[in-house]
Design a protein around this nucleic acid. Structure first.
Lengths: 211, 211
DNA sequence: ATAGACCTGATATATAATTAACACAGCTGA
DNA sequence: TCAGCTGTGTTAATTATATATCAGGTCTAT
């Protein structure tokens, strides 16, 4: 991989999907696959697959295709999911609790070590083995426990102030479920999950392309 | 709006964000705004805002800018959120319950009328006033109750079969939280929310652009 | 061994999306 | 009222993304 060349975000958007398909192939004991066959399954062009992968190196072989297992592992490395990430959930509400209970993330190496909430009723309780701590401890906890990622799952009105606490604590990435844009230093990565915007796009498409 | 011209999905992706910012301006009693000022708040180019809006018509006025309230309403119409959508939640697990309890969607006109689950323990219970019905009733319920949207929030292994039930029932749109691609007729709209892919992109960006 | 099919990585071309430029309509303030 | 701004909508230029093409390495079957 050429460290200097910036990879387009369009490519990054697609990588997890390649990873998912390769995982399924692996489960079905498929050992090799050509860009052409993968392109038919994924409904994209073979050219795009080859172009995308070649951003990171020549993983394939002429006349053979790609080895499923090694490509799967390579993509994991590229995505940085070949090692664990330590994550906290900020906000033990409905969505925060749902994420805590959903063990797929842990399987992918995103380990939830603690939750935080301001409600005294919730503090001290445990959800799926994850303890809920008071908001006041958030900053120190992140500093002391080598936390990479905070999932921000609190109401919009508190999101900006809480994000500032996360930044002050030295967080590396924020998985933002709040309906607002966060402004953080550029080496702090924000990944937005704006569910209501997703619903609005669905609504638009229903109106314009639906039956 | 030119009914013939297909609007690019890049534009549609941005519309809900414009809508959000305009809503905030409206709450702050701002009556007019120029593309330049909005561009500074949103960290995009003024050119892009004008181009995007002009896909749907000339809402602005030279020397004045855009009227916040009327632009807000226009975008709502474009997105099809000026009228209600009736939605069911398929899968009364953690995420399904979280969505049911989250009243922001209802406020935006996405009304949840029922939930469905296969677990006999859950059937008959109520979450936030929404009744949980057995899976067997899903198809008929959709047909009889004028349901537009189904939120698919069940484990991956059941998703494809259940999506087929939804399609057979004549569903118009599927809000898909399952980690799989659905293949449905092209007039059935699928909006994917793949949370684990979102986390992987965060991981990639942490690795490549983080501190 | 070798002919022929396969399939990549690279390069070239085509398409799409973003940004810049600007003519002029409509606003504002004296 | 009118001179000078302001700020749109439009067209042009630039940049990004996606697709097509193809030379040649590698596999496979005989």
């Amino acid at each position: 991989m050429d460290e200097n060349k910036k990879i387009s975000s369009a490519v990054i958007r697609r990588l997890p999907r390649y990873y998912r398909y390769l995982g399924e192939l692996l489960e079905n004991n498929v050992t090799r696959i050509s860009s052409k066959e993968l392109s038919e399954r994924m409904k994209v062009t073979a050219s795009q697959i080859r172009q995308d992968l070649n951003n990171f190196g020549g993983f394939g072989q002429q006349g053979y295709g790609y080895n499923v297992e090694s490509l799967y592992n390579e993509i994991a490395k590229i995505l940085g999911i070949d090692k664990q990430h330590r994550m906290v959930i900020v906000g033990a509400g409905n969505f925060g609790s749902a994420v805590a209970k959903y063990d797929d993330f842990a399987k992918r190496g995103f380990v939830i070590t603690s939750m935080f909430d301001k409600d005294p009723e919730k503090i001290g309780k445990t959800i799926s083995g994850v303890k809920i701590r008071p908001m006041e401890e958030l900053k120190d906890y992140i500093k002391m426990n080598d936390i990479d990622i905070a999932a921000l799952m609190i109401p919009t009105e508190y999101a900006i102030d809480t994000a500032q606490i996360l930044v002050d604590a030295g967080i590396k990435g924020i998985w933002n479920f709040a309906h607002t844009d966060l402004s953080v230093p550029e080496d702090v990565i924000v990944e937005n999950v704006h569910l209501s915007e997703s619903l609005m796009r669905l609504s638009y498409n229903l109106k314009n392309y639906g039956n």
